[in-house]
Design a protein around this nucleic acid. Structure first.
Length: 152
DNA sequence: GCCAACGTTGGC
DNA sequence: GCCAACGTTGGC
């Protein structure tokens, strides 16, 4: 079992949007970063647990939990010229971008804000908190996962 | 293969 | 809206 954190701007797609999806499942499309892609392609397994993180908003932080519902497959938005994330260099025969489907599990009782995470001595090595980190998909250790949940 | 220019992320 | 940090692109 692996643990992850995935970021989304709530103005684009929020935890409530996921919750309100008819089947509570969402293809996590639009990721255009190779490191993030590699993790979705190679390391994410069905059933893995994921923190949903709201970025670029009033209170950035962890807002909920989801699971990996479907393992890596080609991101269809890369092939769609009308999509914001269209990438003409992604050939359907040799797709460049990979996504996973995630499924809503639950919202946290409260938002665990970035500010609060930064205050935790035991989380100082967390990837999310490293200087200049911009990855929208990142691994979390079990220790970090459990500790963060204990803050809830 | 270097590196300057550019675009994006995301906190503030 | 600003801007630091970073990834990508492309000329050479």
């Amino acid at each position: 079992m692996n643990y992850w954190l995935m970021k989304s701007e709530p103005s684009e797609f929020s935890i409530d949007d996921l919750k309100n999806n008819p089947n509570k499942i969402e293809p996590w499309d639009g990721v255009r970063n190779y490191q993030a892609r590699n993790m979705m392609r190679d390391d994410m397994k069905k059933g893995d647990l994921v923190f949903f993180y709201h970025s670029n908003c009033e209170i950035p932080g962890i807002v909920g939990i989801m699971t990996i519902h479907k393992e890596g497959y080609p991101d269809p938005t890369a092939f769609d010229p009308n999509d914001n994330h269209y990438d003409p260099k992604s050939d359907p025969d040799k797709p460049r971008w990979i996504l996973v489907d995630v499924k809503y599990k639950r919202k946290l009782k409260r938002t665990i804000s970035l500010t609060e995470l930064k205050e935790q001595k035991s989380l100082e090595n967390m990837k999310l908190l490293q200087r200049g980190n911009r990855l929208s998909v990142m691994p979390i250790t079990k220790k970090e996962w459990d500790y963060i949940l204990s803050l809830e």
